[in-house]
Design a protein around this nucleic acid. Structure first.
Lengths: 168, 168
DNA sequence: ATTATTTTTCAGAATATTTTGAAAGTTCGA
DNA sequence: TCGAACTTTCAAAATATTCTGAAAAATAAT
């Protein structure tokens, strides 16, 4: 297989994976494209490569920057803006996980607290079960958070390993 | 807040959360409904509660059964089928994670292996970087898998704790 | 200040996903 | 074997999401 073909495949499949996890196809594809590109790319480069419109490119690049996994880069003497992706997959993953937690999980956890405040007799079996379920979800969320924090620590190991490679 | 209102809120918000993670709204809502219901529910019960069609109900209940987080229950003397959700959130979470891995992540990991097989000179910088990126993703996937397996072990702790509560 | 270049916005178009509902299929008791 | 009760299927409709492209806004060079 040729390199260009392999990159193409990677980008396409990364897009599908993104879709399945609630991330829009183009955003995932742009991310994949920048991940496998050695040099920063301009909006025009991205448009051409992925065959998408300027508006679409702009929106999704900005969204990727909001997630902190793509950065704007300026080249001396060039008017255009260029973009580059964070290449360390660990950092990418951690940023995505944390951002999703912040945006999507935390709001619902706040709500759950409110939902436990129910008008019901002490003996009400239904109410008890409901509260127990909510409690379990909250406990689970806490455990998962701790697990992720644990992974962030593993991050340092990884990073150390990556650094080592540079000196080989 | 009243119990019925709290359940309603829970179901609605669980549906939104599902959507954001690539799970369809109705599926998440049915799951939430069964999670907070003490007794098994029939298709008619679900239709009425969530105001959805029979076909929609049927499809999504079956999908939930495929995921292994909803079970069919038969009541003696009743023709209808009833459904009930796995109530232990840990088990639910583990089943979802494993299923998503199996369905969505593993296929792409298989592909990645193929993509590393590139025709290129040994010195080709672009090809090297591409392969390095793929390797990093694979390494990350392995680490994540191990982390999840670690969480499954925590599962036993949790389960022990839940059992304990029963004897209090 | 004017003009050329680039970025951003957003209404409407295109596409993708979900839902409905009625018909076909299944199951089971009489 | 028949028919009532229930479940499944799936084409078409409804809905939701994403994408386009041209106009407006911003930016920088002359």
């Amino acid at each position: 297989m040729k390199l260009s073909e392999a990159k193409q495949q990677f980008i396409l499949n990364w897009g599908v994976l993104g879709t399945q996890w609630g991330i829009n196809r183009t955003m995932a594809q742009i991310h994949a494209l920048l991940l496998v590109s050695t040099d920063p790319m301009s909006a025009d480069d991205i448009m051409k490569e992925l065959q998408i419109s300027r508006g679409n490119t702009n929106m999704n690049v900005r969204e990727l920057m909001d997630w902190g996994i793509v950065d704007k880069v300026l080249k001396p003497g060039e008017r255009k803006e260029f973009f580059t992706a964070e290449k360390d997959i660990w950092i990418v993953a951690m940023k995505i996980i944390r951002e999703r937690k912040r945006r999507e999980v935390e709001p619902i956890l706040g709500l759950l607290d409110q939902l436990k405040d129910i008008e019901a007799d002490k003996g009400d079996k239904d109410a008890k079960q409901f509260i127990a379920t909510i409690n379990d979800i909250q406990r689970f969320a806490n455990q998962a958070t701790r697990a992720v924090d644990g992974m962030v620590k593993m991050d340092e190991h990884w990073f150390a390993g990556t650094l080592l490679k540079l000196f080989k």
